[in-house]
Structure formats: structure tokens, C-alpha cells
């Protein structure tokens, strides 16, 4: 009789349901997995920062002899208040060679003003980079893209690519491919407030 009483539906409902830890863990794992995949998807679809967007933070370790204001390392934040012309290049890149003299000449033209030229050697071998810098008698600050961190942040699709960043750290022009004198002068003078 007592057995019958125990198995009645009322008594079954009254007893607390055990916590199903297995199911909880399962759903947590599924949601974590989905979140991870979503994050990966967002990262894969990340696009190059364009005009009007804040320039992604970057940190550089300059080549010996190519430092900026005698600093061995610098962040983009240190250059705030100056126009930054950041050029991605490589010694193996044929088109970079076409613009190398032009960039150096423009640097020499504006170096006394609030402009920083920053060369970033992409996927290059250091001795070859130094050889290239000597070959074109380059004097503006240059650094390797260590760990390809900078090119990843700026989502470059190749070299050469040049980003013109204003004094507030906002990207104002992106040049895909080789530069020309007119573009450099117009953009730099505009960003210096002379245009």
C-alpha cells in the first residue's frame, strides 16, 4: 500500500528535480563554440581601416640607424600631433622601388614640419631591408613589421600601401599601389592645414 502511495503522480511532482549538470555543461560548451566561431568569422571579414576611421594602434621597433627622434621604439600615440605618412614596403617588391626615391624626396621636403614618415618593411628579411634602405639612400624612420602585427591591424592586401594619418590619429587617405608627387603634396599640405 505504501509502495503505491510513493508512486502516485502527486508525490513525484513534489520531489525536486535533480540539477542536470551534464545538460548545462553541454549547452555552455555549444554556446562557447558558437561564440568562438562567430568571433573567428568577424575577424576573417575584418576590412582595411578607411578614411575617417581612427588609425589602429601600433608599436614599432626601428631598424638601427633609422630611429625616430632617437627612440629605438615608438607607438602611434607618441606621434599624435603630427601628420603620419606610413608606407608599407618590401625589398622584393618591384613597385616599392618605383616610389622609393619619391618618398625620400618628399620626406626631405617636409621633415622640418609636423610630419613623420614611417616605413614599415613587410615580410622582409632584415639584411635585405637594410640593403634596400642604403640603395635608395633612405633617411626617414623605418621598422620591420614584427610578427606582421601592423599589417594585420591595417589589413593590407599587398605592398606598397600608404596610410596618411592626421594630427588627431584619424586616417585621411589610403593609397593602394605606388604614390605620385601630386597626391603626396596635396594630402600632406591639406593635413598640415596649408591646403
Amino acid at each position: 500500500m505504501s509502495d503505491l502511495k510513493e508512486s502516485t503522480p502527486e508525490t513525484e511532482e513534489a520531489s525536486p528535480r535533480p540539477i542536470r549538470w551534464g545538460m548545462i555543461a553541454l549547452w555552455v560548451a555549444v554556446f562557447s563554440l558558437l561564440a568562438l566561431l562567430g568571433w573567428g568569422l568577424v575577424n576573417t571579414n575584418a576590412t582595411r581601416p578607411e578614411k575617417g576611421e581612427e588609425a589602429p594602434a601600433l608599436s614599432v621597433e626601428f631598424f638601427n640607424g633609422y630611429e625616430w627622434e632617437d627612440r629605438a621604439t615608438a607607438d602611434l600615440l607618441d606621434m599624435r600631433g603630427k601628420v603620419v605618412v606610413m608606407n608599407f614596403w618590401a625589398s622584393w617588391c618591384v613597385e616599392c622601388r618605383l616610389e622609393a626615391d619619391l618618398i625620400e624626396d618628399t620626406w626631405r621636403k617636409y621633415e622640418d614640419q609636423d610630419v613623420v614618415f614611417l616605413g614599415v618593411a613587410y615580410a622582409d628579411v632584415e639584411p635585405k631591408s637594410i640593403e634596400y634602405l642604403h640603395e635608395f639612400d633612405i633617411t626617414y624612420p623605418n621598422a620591420p613589421d614584427l610578427g606582421t602585427d601592423i599589417s594585420d591591424e591595417y589589413e593590407i592586401t599587398g605592398v606598397p600601401e600608404t596610410f596618411f594619418i592626421d594630427k588627431e590619429g584619424v586616417i585621411q587617405h589610403v593609397q593602394i599601389g605606388p604614390l605620385n608627387q601630386q597626391t603626396m603634396d596635396v594630402v600632406i599640405q591639406q593635413l598640415l592645414g596649408e591646403g
Partner: peptide
């Protein structure tokens, strides 16, 4: 996470299901 943890988690989830 991607190369080691993720496959193990996936196998565990599949086994649980």
C-alpha cells in the same frame, strides 16, 4: 584553443549527444 581544445570539446559534445 582552435587546434587542441576545440576538437576535444567537439568530440565530448558529440559523445554526450
Amino acid at each position: 584553443i582552435i587546434l587542441w581544445v576545440l576538437p576535444i570539446v567537439l568530440v565530448l559534445i558529440a559523445a554526450l549527444f
